[in-house]
Amino acid sequence: MEREPEISIRIFSDPHLLATVRGAIEGLAKCVGFHDKSRAMLTLAIDEALTNVIRHGYGDQTHGMIWVHMWRSADPRGLRIIIEDLGKATDPSKIKGRELDDVRPGGLGVHIIKETMNEAAWEPRPSGGMRLTLAKWLNAEELATSYPSPSNPEQSNS
């Protein structure tokens, strides 16, 4: 990712702060042109990713660091998000959602992320913790009803 993100947020791993991040994502997603249902699912997916960091990366400790970086992308049009932490690293091959036929509480977050996002890739950070790279593109209907923003650096440079 070459240019600076449109929005960068650093939060502690405190569940009470998640609503603040949801507000930022919702606002940027609206700016990009996502319709209400897509915005709802995008916000939920990021929220689930942060919840997983708090729960599994930091074991529900509230003082861990989490960074959320968000970029508008021009081609394809949509959003790219990177979430980084310094928590416990996990083997990416072991990050799986549970089978939905198994009706029980928990384990839905990874399923929601994979179902919602066009791209979702977990990797350990070389200096510790995990990095999750996410992307969601506008669908055909959203592309037809939105316009590229002239303030988007990626678009104005192309």
Binding site: D47, E48, T51, V103, R104, P105, G106, G109
Partner: peptide, 14 residues
């Protein structure tokens, strides 16, 4: 807004 923790609670209620 309900996240998967909220959904899990509803599943427990069920």
């Amino acid at each position: 807004y309900v996240d998967s923790s909220g959904i899990a609670t509803l599943v427990e209620a069920l």
